[in-house]
């Protein structure tokens, strides 16, 4: 239980995890569910219980598609996607913790890849 990290995540995300009624609609709706170690409803539960480290180590934060389906369909307006982004930021704001490094870009480049893809990957995966 990491109180400091928990408070940081809650503040950055603006999410009130206590509003969650544990219905699991976020995870029922998530298009990346099968690729995730921890699922949207678990983000809410684990942040609530302060289990942030496990989330920071998990692949889930890089798998979230930021499609906002969980935000749109949550009956309690919990916004799980905001929590996932806050955990992702908590990781990449550490020194040398960028998930995507500039030197990796050229090998991923494709003829048709739009600039938008590169810019957004940078925004989401590095600081």
């Amino acid at each position: 239980m990491d109180k400091f990290l928990q408070e940081q995540i809650l503040r950055m995300s603006g999410v009130n995890t206590r509003k969650c009624m544990k219905c699991g609609k976020c995870s029922g709706t998530c298009p990346a569910y099968d690729e995730m170690e921890y699922h949207p409803h678990q983000f809410v539960a684990m942040v609530e219980s302060g289990d942030i480290d496990a989330l920071m180590q998990s692949n889930s934060i890089w798998t979230c598609l930021s499609c906002f389906a969980c935000v749109e369909r949550c009956p309690r307006s919990v916004e799980p996607a905001n929590l996932i982004e806050a955990v992702r930021l908590a990781v990449i704001r550490q020194q040398n913790a960028n998930h995507l490094k500039a030197q990796e870009i050229p090998e991923n480049l494709e003829e048709k890849l739009p600039q938008q893809a590169i810019v957004s990957a940078f925004r989401k995966y590095s600081k």
Binding site: T63, L65, A69
Partner: peptide, 19 residues
């Protein structure tokens, strides 16, 4: 109105392809 997985098309091609 379901996600195509565009954001991960660079780094998780498998997921993007599935979507």
């Amino acid at each position: 109105n379901e996600c195509c997985g565009g954001y991960v098309s660079m780094e998780n091609k498998k997921l993007a392809q599935k979507k």
